[in-house]
Design a protein around this nucleic acid. Structure first.
Lengths: 356, 356
DNA sequence: TAATAATTATGCTATATAGCACTTTAAACG
DNA sequence: CGTTTAAAGTGCTATATAGCATAATTATTA
């Protein structure tokens, strides 16, 4: 008999082992029963259980009994949620789109008295330390972080945005990228454009694929053949916008308009055109995607697709709150609409291009 | 005798009142003494005290006694710090400068296993709830939030950035705005500019004042008289850059160069000049301040002052960590240097303006 | 006066006991 | 068989008591 370890700690450890060995699955024996079985006083049992309740391993329902806490539904709420973004995203949180997403999420969470922590993929011990602070996570989803998201889901409720997760049990809020790109093509065709270049985003995700598919579908809808030479593979960076223009201008017949799968690439394309002495939109029209803050501030103001960032944030947070509170979700997957905002980088196709 | 309120809760409230009324300053009477004084059993006293200890109001030193917890020194660390920014800042966290600051702070804190929560001025109960989650706060300081910062300081360690706090016991990391502006003037003078306009920031803070003072000092240093008509009062927004250009172009003799107290105003100025058919830098040179990400991406790339944002973030966080750990600070106030980055919006003054 | 021993103070552990209010189950009654 | 009553089960509150180990204070002794 080890007299240096208090008995209540022995009881705590005994209960921990019973749970770990699945001898206690959900409901503990009553306190008086435990006292009889283990041969300790009732008050000692109560003290041990009280500590495990404080620790979050157990919870009590008065008059009913004591239960093993399910981490995701019974944990004491921290009042803090996390926003996860892959650390390989260029510019991270200082990139225009993601800083707007984060700002919108922060506002949505603050309205409900929640705090928001931003985190990226990190080592395991830092991750676990961070997750202990969180009631749930909203994550921008890309295929390359699916494993990571599963890891998050094992610990806390998760909602994904931008792309749906492969695991369809994870709720998602995404954008209808396809229809938005069709709308851009429609608009350019209404301006008389027939050679429309496209700088893709990354096609390793639905966002990238759907923006490209929307471009192609829009062309077909307007009776324009899809020409592979009018497609440049981009990666969402300013630099690939620059490279895209280099490529298009090397064609025998350059496009009269260029759609870019995001605004940063559109900025790069415009920069390069200006550098080469070409006018936007007089010589070539440019359309972006995202409507980042700067889009309306450059000269000329960028024609782009408006993304309802505040709505995405609010929607995702509402879904996460339902998960945290154990309430049912009405819809597990929501796709919000985006729409074209015509500004100064798009105009009717120049006359000499029509006749060419 | 109210039989619906448990006695241990009555004891908890009694102790709370004693502390609030300063009848207990530091050390509580012994548990047995309290039991005798209040007429409850020793075990009831212990239970009440145990709860207050769990709550963080008290702490116990075995064999010595029970003490009132000093919030700043005895609290269990949460591993989370806050970044506070006045909610009236235009664009909030999605504005280029602050999103870069936040990103840099997040990286600096993550390196030490800390999490970062962004918060703005908010109602009292949300503030207290948020502060409970924090080990300390880094705050962008403006005169109008001095009171708020004092409130923060009463609860957690605080470090300020951008402007020093009036309360000089609060450590600060600021930028040498004065010398940076002198450098801009020097540079413009080396390009032959003699009429240099200045769009100020807000002069309700040292940042705004020092950028203006640096402009004036730079002029005097280069033997140029300071002309009040060449100064336009701005407010750091794109719109006031636009208005500044309107004002300068209304002068009989417009300036050949315009310095702006931040990049957003520079973007506005450029936009307006382009709108009016003027060329940058051919007709008017423009210099910004901050070197936000977009500065190098617009056409032409913006000449601006590079601000060592990563260094500010790391420095501020290191100071805060010392405060949290109770370590002495080497320097309480640090001013970091900024430097001019010449790009495409500045050039030699045009010939017709020199002769005019 | 200094050193040593005894006493006191302190929070901690542990047991025993006797209810209370509420919920669920079983037994009794019509 | 349905309804009512009683019993059992459950966590909760409250008190009393008797130590334990450690530190500080007081008393005693050399």
């Amino acid at each position: 008999m080890d007299t240096t370890i208090p008995k209540y700690l022995l009881v705590e450890d005994h209960i921990r082992q019973q749970i770990k060995q699945r001898k206690i699955i959900d409901k503990l024996p009553g306190e008086r029963q435990l006292a009889a079985e283990l041969g300790y006083s009732y008050m000692t049992i109560r003290k041990a259980i009280e500590n495990l309740v404080d620790e979050g391993l157990l919870y009590k329902v008065p008059t009913k009994g004591t239960y093993v806490a399910d981490r995701k539904t019974q944990k004491t709420k921290t009042g803090t949620i996390g926003y996860f973004l892959d650390s390989r995203i260029a510019g991270g949180l200082s990139s225009p789109y993601y800083s707007q997403i984060f700002d919108a999420l922060q506002k949505a969470t603050a309205r409900e008295g929640y705090s928001l922590i931003y985190f990226t993929d990190t080592n395991e011990s830092d991750l676990q330390r961070t997750l202990k602070k969180l009631d749930g996570v909203i994550s921008t989803c890309f295929p390359r972080v699916e494993g990571f998201i599963q890891e998050l889901k094992a610990v806390v409720p998760v909602v994904v945005i931008d792309n749906s997760a492969a695991d369809k049990t994870i709720p998602s809020v995404i954008l209808d990228n396809f229809s938005a790109q069709v709308e851009s093509v429609d608009y350019l065709c209404s301006l008389g454009h027939e050679r429309i270049g496209f700088i893709t985003g990354l096609e390793d995700s639905d966002v990238g694929k759907n923006r490209y598919e929307g471009y192609k579908s829009g062309l077909q809808k307007n009776g324009i053949a899809v020409e592979p030479e009018l497609v440049f593979r981009g990666n969402y960076t300013f630099g690939s916008g620059v490279s895209g223009v280099d490529y298009f201008l090397s064609l025998e017949q350059r496009p009269s308009a260029i759609m870019c799968a995001n605004d940063s690439m559109a900025l790069g394309a415009i920069s390069k055109l200006h550098q080469l002495g070409l006018e936007v939109p007089e010589d070539i029209s440019i359309i972006g995607f995202d409507d980042i803050n700067v889009a309306s501030q450059i000269t000329p103001p960028l024609t782009t697709i408006f993304v309802p960032i505040n709505e995405i944030a609010a929607c995702a947070f509402n879904m996460l709150q339902c998960l945290i509170d154990g309430k049912p979700l009405e819809n597990r997957h929501i796709a919000l609409a985006a729409h074209l905002v015509p500004r100064g980088t798009s105009a009717e196709v120049a006359a000499e291009l029509v006749t060419a």
